[in-house]
């Protein structure tokens, strides 16, 4: 970079270089962080939907349970005070005891299911963000993809069927939360590109010392004039206020940091395929700075 002839009038002593590089590094980190926050913000809407559903029926079931209990207590209270067996039978009939019994069991089972679902959503969300994990570690890429898929599922299930075509992958040395972030961006873009209902294929395979991850969609594709710009920061075709245009540029820098590559091929009107190539890099830890 320092040998660039166009830059000759810019003074760049080695000292300046380090300062600039540090600054660049800092800005990059900030960008990464803000993109992460933006992604979480977007997810929040989808997650709210996914959580409000189970909370909705569990809450309503509790209110029904309240009513059922009133009837049940009327019966149990009567056990002491009723003078005849018939009187109890009558009360049993009037509160529709048989129905209550059966429905109470269902009510509890369904409510438990709802709470389990909320629990799963929260756990996946935490797995996904991996809060402060910033270290290279051996990680299972498929686990990352699956976690990401379940986090974003609420948003794509209405737009596309997701097909997983997974090969056998070794563990990969990477910052898995960042790789998740890249997958998330690609999935979100794929879902956005689909008008109506389409298909998203996530394909993985292992080749000598690297792994390949494809995210392919049947969306509207990218035109010839745009395809070279999609990795540029702030390039977006979304309306103002909807996209920051940072998703792909951040994904690019994450993959670059992993010494990998990210490429795109697209046919307008048919679909797009983003390909990530990541070195497995088990023996080589020198590049982790």
């Amino acid at each position: 970079m320092s040998g660039d002839p166009i830059m000759t009038d810019v003074p760049n002593s080695p000292a300046d270089d380090t300062a600039l590089n540090e600054q660049l590094e800092r800005v990059n980190r900030q960008l990464l962080q803000s993109e992460k926050m933006a992604a979480i913000g977007q997810l929040a809407a989808g997650v709210a939907h996914e959580i409000n559903n189970p909370i909705g029926y569990v809450y309503s079931n509790l209110q029904s349970l309240d009513r059922y209990l009133v009837d049940m207590f009327r019966l149990t209270d009567a056990i002491g005070s009723a003078s005849t067996q018939e009187e109890l039978e009558e009360l049993k009939q009037s509160i529709d005891y048989e129905f209550l019994r059966g429905d109470l069991e269902d009510l509890v089972a369904e409510s438990r299911e709802g709470i389990e679902r909320v629990k799963t959503i929260i756990t996946t969300l935490m797995d996904f963000t991996h809060a402060d994990e910033e270290e290279f570690k051996l990680a299972d890429i498929h686990w990352g993809i699956n976690t990401t898929l379940s986090v974003i599922n609420n948003e794509i299930k209405y737009k596309a069927e997701v097909v997983k075509d997974f090969g056998d992958l070794p563990l990969v040395s990477c910052i898995i939360s960042q790789i998740n972030q890249v997958i998330l961006n690609l999935l979100a873009n794929a879902a956005h590109s689909i008008e109506g209902f389409g298909k998203i294929i996530v394909r993985t395979r292992h080749e000598s010392n690297y792994v390949v991850i494809d995210v392919e969609d049947t969306g509207k594709g990218i035109s010839q004039e745009h395809i070279n710009k999609v990795f540029d920061p702030f390039f977006t075709t979304k309306p103002i206020g909807e996209g920051t245009g940072l998703g792909l540029s951040l994904s690019f820098s994450i993959v670059e940091k992993h010494n990998g590559r990210i490429d795109v091929t697209s046919t307008p009107g048919k679909g797009t395929c983003f390909r990530i190539i990541l070195p497995i890099g088990t023996s080589d830890t020198g590049r982790c700075s």
């Binding site: 309503s60 029904s64 009513r67 269902d106 369904e110 299911e113």
Partner: peptide
């Protein structure tokens, strides 16, 4: 599309 929502509402509305 969520069957448990339907069941909870049925519980409530049938009553």
């Amino acid at each position: 599309d969520e069957p448990n929502i339907l069941k909870a509402l049925k519980r409530l509305l049938k009553a």
